[in-house]
Design a protein around this nucleic acid. Structure first.
Lengths: 182, 182
DNA sequence: GACAGCATGTAAGAGGTTACATGATTGG
DNA sequence: CCAATCATGTAACCTCTTACATGCTGTC
């Protein structure tokens, strides 16, 4: 149910094709929702049938034609109704934490490599967020709409920073474990 | 696939019934995974069929009988195989962030109430974690197994703290919006 | 008598992943 | 020629939620 509203929200910033929505969710601005292209195409079809969105086929040179979607009045009404409902807490599902919890069963070098792989991901994410943050500064006194989206960026930054602080603690501990095993 | 290993991991600390596993996931120690009782009973059945766990029926006085599960050797082997596989990144799915992103469409008082509801949840969670943290202190020089589980507690604490710092920024902003609307 | 807690489950359906499938263009 | 990017989709399968179903005990 939330996916369709994530789509309507991304469409609010810029009219997009399914392909472009998928890109937005996976790269950069996927702070609040992500989904595969298969899921997005399916959802867009359902939303079109339900009258929440409509599309225009845009022909391109050197590229295949694309369906550019726009939200209908019904779509915006559905969004506004949904916004008043209480938001569900995100359920905790963290496979890396599970592996650390039972870390004594695993070779610490293997665990360290795994943690570092995730660390690299969060470092890149934080860097992207900080770059967007730099672009935000000049428009801080601009419309409230931008200030709301800035708050979501702040969340990404604070959570990524906290994750990196935590992972440093983990790496320090794992390095000690590796040293001790000699 | 990860649910079954979350079950095996909780069973490692203490032999449990499905009901008790569900309690562990929803209250207190659900730092890494959560699941409904329906899902757990179904998974336990599949795991029993696959030979990963077995159970004894324990009769109780004043309470219905329960099935207490234990992990088999095959179960532990499956766990150890899984631990060597790369852990999947947790996909971002945050309905509250979506609502804040398009906050300018919503009455700021409604949004504030919603944020405060989530805030209360994280405050209680942090309090629980801090209580557990207090119990951990005396065993800091104890077996590495405890030190690994302490790292997962640290994650809960750091992430909850970061969440609360962020939500304070959000509440400050929303209060300003409410003031400005007069 | 009603409600909460203990304890187990089934079934329908929504949500999401993985694999497969097509076809055009551009760059190495 | 191969791989990548753009662009769309289907099908099978797994995961998860919601609703329903049962039955016992203890408390208000």
């Amino acid at each position: 149910m939330a996916l369709r509203f994530a789509i309507i929200i991304t469409l609010e910033d810029k009219l997009c094709s399914g392909y472009e929505i998928a890109q937005n969710f996976n790269r950069g601005l996927g702070y609040f929702w992500c989904a595969s292209h298969q899921q997005i195409y399916l959802e867009l079809k359902k939303m079109t049938d339900a009258g929440l969105v409509s599309y225009d086929v845009i022909k391109q040179v050197g590229k295949p034609a694309k369906k550019v979607y726009r939200t209908t009045t019904e779509g915006f009404n559905a969004l506004d109704d949904w916004l008043l409902l209480p938001a569900k807490m995100t359920p905790v599902k963290d496979a890396l934490l599970m592996k650390i919890y039972v870390g004594s069963r695993v070779n610490p070098t293997v665990l360290l490599t795994e943690v570092q792989r995730h660390q690299q991901h969060y470092r890149e994410l934080l860097k992207t967020y900080q770059e967007i943050d730099g672009c935000f500064q000049p428009i801080k006194e601009k419309p409230t709409k931008y200030q709301y989206s800035y708050l979501t960026l702040r969340k990404g930054i604070l959570q990524a920073e906290a994750w990196l602080v935590w992972s440093d603690e983990v790496c320090t501990f794992l390095n000690d474990q590796i040293k001790d095993s000699f």
